[in-house]
Amino acid sequence: MMDKMIFGRYVPAQSIIHRLDPRSKLLMIFLFVCIVFIANNPATYALLVVYTFLMVSLSKVPFRFIIAGLKPVLWLVLFTMLLHLFLTKEGEIIFQAGWFKIYEEGLRQGIFISMRFFLLILMTSILTLTTTPIEITDGLESLLHPLNKVKFPVHELALMMSISLRFIPTLMQETDKIMKAQTARGVDFTSGPIKERMKAIIPLLIPLFVSSFKRAEELATAMEARGYRGGEGRTKYRQLSWGFKDTFMLLLLVLLALLLFLLRT
């Protein structure tokens, strides 16, 4: 089930997008989310599409792969489109079959809004596909750093995030292992009435909890043994470096925003 999900998975490659500073990528996503709402006519949408596909091609992640991974989300996009198509009743009727009518405005909004949705998802996937989770964490830690002044525990939060990221694959393996062990003892996780299936979760969850607690305890011991005693006095090994390409990419996005403003109606 998890095998086919690519959302949130990192695909290693050597591309300019991969090499961007995670902070610039995070800022770009943030800006992009705002900018998308400027577009309101075919020209501006075309511009957004061109920009997004430029980013996709720069990332060197195979397009086929992105689409395959986005399949579950594409249904949502299609649903959004149909919703607008059927429920908007403005403009001229462009199609009619009995009581069923499609209005011009419906078609227009359907296409635009689902496109907006689609482009947003595409851009966010590019971020997660080209940035390791730990880079995203570092980026967030750095961007949130000013919040330290108001006693916001940025270091602890970042450490928690990075340890969680570190243990997700371990926990998945563990889940798989315990599921198999209990299946071998006659538990059926995949079929049967809902009530039975809910009951089947207990023999999975309890061992998972027990082992997670044990892990957490051992990890804490290991961390202590290696001299961890909070964020104070700690140096940082990972360093982010903001380069010309980051400034350039951000400027490109600002330029796009300006163009959209000029072209919107």
């Binding site: 292992k177 315990i178 062990a181 003892r185 023999p203 309890i206 061992p207 027990v210």
Partner: peptide, 10 residues
């Protein structure tokens, strides 16, 4: 009997 079967006790 899986490896480290004690992990399946609940």
């Amino acid at each position: 009997v899986f490896q480290f079967p004690e992990h399946q006790l609940f």
